[in-house]
């Protein structure tokens, strides 16, 4: 049972207050995209044992979606941040790189 810090309302929210929304930082493929890109967007998801970026909604709280950087094996949370971004903030990337030597955002999944 996770606790995640909601970056919008500041609450350390119990998992029962949250709704999980799968992998974060997907790029939407709309009309005109290739079949391969569209398939990738629609169906193909990372399933790492290790660092992962996820979407969560503080559904019973402020209702906002946010992102969490989390280790799927140890459940360590490197940080949470607002969803209105294309990649995690630098301080979280640094924290992950410190904790998981060799990791970098470029080869995220």
């Amino acid at each position: 049972m996770l606790i995640l810090h909601c970056p919008y309302c500041g609450v350390d929210a119990d998992e029962t207050d949250l709704h999980a929304g799968g992998q974060a930082h997907l790029k939407r493929e709309g009309p005109g995209s290739s079949d391969e890109d569209f398939e990738d967007y629609l169906f193909l998801r990372a399933n790492p044992k290790g660092v992962h970026f996820e979407r969560w909604r503080h559904v019973y709280g402020c209702g906002k979606w946010f992102h969490a950087a989390r280790c799927t094996a140890t459940l360590q949370v490197f940080g949470t941040y607002p969803a209105q971004t294309l990649e995690p903030p630098q301080d979280i990337k640094d924290k992950i790189a410190d904790a998981r030597p060799g990791w970098s955002w470029g080869d995220k999944e």
Binding site: G21, G63, W65
Partner: peptide, 13 residues
């Protein structure tokens, strides 16, 4: 409602 909020918050913010 959640579907609309999702698109508004996470895609077309």
């Amino acid at each position: 409602h959640a579907h609309m909020e999702d698109w508004l918050q996470c895609e077309w913010w």
